[in-house]
Simulated assay, not measured.
Amino acid sequence: MVKRTAGSLALVASAAGAWELYKAIGSADGTSVGGVRVLPRADDAAMPHLWTVLHRLGEPELNGGAPIWEVLVKACLTTLGIVSAGFAAGALVGLALAVLMERSSFAERGLLPYVVLSQTVPLVALAPVIAGWGGQLMPQWATVSVIAAYLAFFPVAVGMLRGLQSPSAEAVELMDSYSAGWWKTLVKLRMPASLPYLFPALKLAGAAAVVGAVVGEISTGTRGGIGRLVIEYSREATTDPAKVYTAMLGAALLGLAVTGVLTLAQRLLIKEIRT
């Protein structure tokens, strides 16, 4: 645990050092190859110092208003609620699809290509469609939750399917020799065998749900969440670039928090199983 924490801190420190190093030696106009910019501009308008961004967190969002960190916390909590609903729905749909595809090879051949194909639809185009389907009956937050669920179900469905199919033929034959039916084999053999595949899939789903919620908030104009702050703060990019990075930092920390909660749940469940 200590080594992992030290490694994570070292990685963050390395990334911060690389940022400041490039800002010190990089060109203010960026680096171009063949007329195409391959590295960003290193001026303060495009890449503010990290300490400037951190200092901006403690300053008021508006004159006389609350500090930005407080605004970000409230926005992240709002988005977290949306992410939780979308993640739960997406995970349940993914689990159901995985069980169905494991149960029937016909269903697997028929559904799996469309499950993969579903992830090629641009979210920006999908959000207005979902909002149109919901109309006045679906609040904006529910629309965003559906978008989050749409991204979350895919890794769960694929990862869980692989996990359910992971037991060896000998283990399945042993269950058959005990006259165990499909349901008992699923519960006693396939489900436990799928745990090493399920939790990485859930972590990917959690991160995808955050991305879906942020993009959904931006696309639908949902107010109160971190996605809306990203688009609002980006309008001040030329005059207050550090403010833009505070919103992006908040979104990144939200994703890390969701992944951290899922990692903690994994460790607690594994500990419970071992005891």
Score class of each variant (00 low, 15 high):
Val144His: 09
Ala96Glu: 10
Gly17Tyr: 09
Val124Met: 07
Pro67Phe: 06
Leu249Trp: 04
Met47Arg: 10
Thr120Asn: 14
Val146Glu: 03
Ile270Leu: 15
Glu217Arg: 02
Ala148Pro: 11
Leu137Cys: 00
Leu111Gln: 01
Gly163Tyr: 00
Ile68Met: 12
Ala13Val: 08
Trp183Tyr: 15
Met1Asn: 12
Ala157Ser: 11
Ala152Asn: 08
Met248Lys: 01
Val258Arg: 00
Ile82Asp: 01
Leu195Thr: 13
Ala207Cys: 04
Gly58Cys: 03
Leu253Ser: 11
Ala89Tyr: 07
Ala75Thr: 02
Trp19Lys: 05
Ile273Leu: 11
Ile226Gln: 01
Ile82Lys: 02
Thr185Met: 12
Ala208Cys: 10
Leu264Ile: 09
Leu164Phe: 01
Glu102Asn: 14
Leu189Gln: 04
Ala24Thr: 14
Glu20Val: 07
Thr5Phe: 15
Ala142Cys: 08
Gly64Lys: 12
Ala193Met: 10
Ala10Arg: 03
Ala205Lys: 00
Leu57Arg: 10
Thr185Glu: 11
Thr238Met: 12
Pro67His: 04
Ala96Phe: 15
Leu126Ser: 03
Glu70Asp: 12
Ile130Trp: 06
Val156Phe: 07
Gly81Tyr: 05
Leu264Asp: 09
Lys3Asp: 12
Glu236Pro: 02
Leu50Asp: 06
Leu268Met: 12
Ala209Asp: 02
Gly86Asp: 04
Pro48Phe: 02
Ala207Ser: 12
Ala209Lys: 02
Gln119Lys: 13
Leu269Ala: 11
Ser14Lys: 02
Gly30Lys: 00
Gly94Tyr: 05
Val187Thr: 14
Ser234Cys: 09
Thr52His: 15
Gly7Leu: 10
